[in-house]
Design a protein around this nucleic acid. Structure first.
Lengths: 250, 250
DNA sequence: TCAAAGTCAAGAGCAGTGCTCACAATCGCG
DNA sequence: CGCGATTGTGAGCACTGCTCTTGACTTTGA
């Protein structure tokens, strides 16, 4: 990270070390303020004030406020991705894994509402997410994709009955299947996309206060949504008592 | 509104008239800037500058920037509500009405992305939506609820097979059914909630750039989501060729 | 009719923001 | 060890939301 690779030798100059340290301090303080007051209230000046440095010093480390926000976005994506990955790592039946991952994602969102809003909320009009965010951003989607692949290989996917796919939808699903969901039925891929947007739509509605006055216990609705969206994937709760030696290599 | 009721006589003083006019001008200009540059970039000063008045004058009409934003939020809710209502007013089969309303909502969102973000995006941390927004906000949900009620009365709802509802979910659904969905099966109510969040989750993902790099044609996925979510409601495309005299009164 | 009361816009000003730039200090590498 | 790149500083610019005083205007009531 803060090491300088040069001519094959890996050296970490004291300057680079100090630089990375200060940079980390800035990000840490920024994340702290983000968690407390939200992204709009995050100001460079307050960060530097807290760190005891001049307001202009931060520009030695981040060329603009947006760049600092980008760092926070990457951190948020990584945090969510890590949570999803550990949730999916716990084995078990496909439906149970789906449920576990969904709960983990919602749990992370409830614990880090401002980070969640930073990622899934309304984008800042002038801001364009840089390319280095796509990697961390795809971690959680890859988790969900892997879950479907595993379920399919274990034979735990039942057919989804949403009628025939439109030609255009088949094209989309086919492209995605080739990309990250080998051999998974196209109807499941298409349903998975809907389940995916439903999952985050649900969380966003809860977190952004859209359920207020309509649903009293969001977690109850979320649990129901888990079951319903699992149906879109071809997953049903407790259908197979678990094939014993189903964890076969392809 | 701008009329002064006094001693039983209703008079509209020239002052009140002018006041309402200026207020409307401010809102109009603010909405124009909102549509162009988004809510964060909307500044009172730029609005007054455009209107040729002093920056402090606007505080005669809106006590704060948040109040002006509230007016814009109400307008946005009303705009979306009107679109949904006219879409639902066009009769036809229940599934077709569901599809028409969904498309209309998405169309409005695509045409007014910043207004949509204002309503369904991440909330401003300090801002609490006042009570006068709940009326306009509930218009679109009432449209969807009415659609379900009509479909049920017309006998166009098939049973949804998502397994038995949990006790807590039944309570939630029952409360909602008593509130706005008389006689509609609880499973449909529960599925309707999921469909509701899915619908807006889909639109938010598209509008907020979350589908970028994953789904190439969002409208294709949206059309698929319409069909899939209709299934959560117990609606299937073109199932009954339309019961002739089914529009019975209870 | 004419002054009092109420209303409104303007301007100055405050505290805060992101960001730039010239300058000084300091630190470390060759 | 000295030179140069790197880092921190403080002033300053243009902007924001918001407050408050001042002066002009309109409406009201005796």
């Amino acid at each position: 990270m803060w090491q300088t690779r040069w001519m094959g030798t890996t050296i970490a100059t004291a300057r680079a070390r100090a630089r990375a340290e200060v940079r980390a301090e800035i990000v840490t303080e920024a994340r702290r303020q983000l968690a407390v007051e939200g992204a709009p209230a995050l100001s460079l000046r307050s960060v530097t004030r807290q760190l005891g440095m001049a307001s202009s010093a931060v520009y030695r480390y981040f060329p603009s406020r947006d760049e600092l926000l980008t760092a926070l976005i990457v951190e948020a994506y990584d945090g969510l991705g890590a949570v999803a990955e550990t949730a999916a790592a716990a084995g078990g039946q496909a439906f149970e894994r789906w449920r576990t991952v969904c709960r983990a994602i919602r749990g992370w969102a409830l614990e880090n509402p401002h980070e969640y809003a930073l990622i899934f909320g309304s984008p800042v009009p002038g801001y364009e997410a840089p390319a280095l965010t796509v990697g961390p951003a795809s971690r959680v989607t890859l988790v969900l994709a892997g879950l479907l692949v595993d379920a399919h290989r274990a034979g735990e996917l039942t057919d989804v009955d949403a009628g025939p796919l439109s030609r255009a939808m088949s094209v989309e699903a086919l492209r995605l299947a080739d990309l990250a969901l080998p051999d998974v039925p196209l109807a499941t891929v298409a349903g998975g996309l809907v389940a995916w947007t439903s999952l985050f739509g649900q969380i966003s509605f809860e977190l952004f206060g859209q359920l207020k006055g309509i649903v009293e216990q969001p977690e109850v609705l979320f649990e129901h949504a888990i079951i319903v969206t699992a149906g879109l994937l071809g997953l049903r709760p407790g259908q197979l008592p678990g094939p014993v030696a189903a964890q076969t290599e392809p």
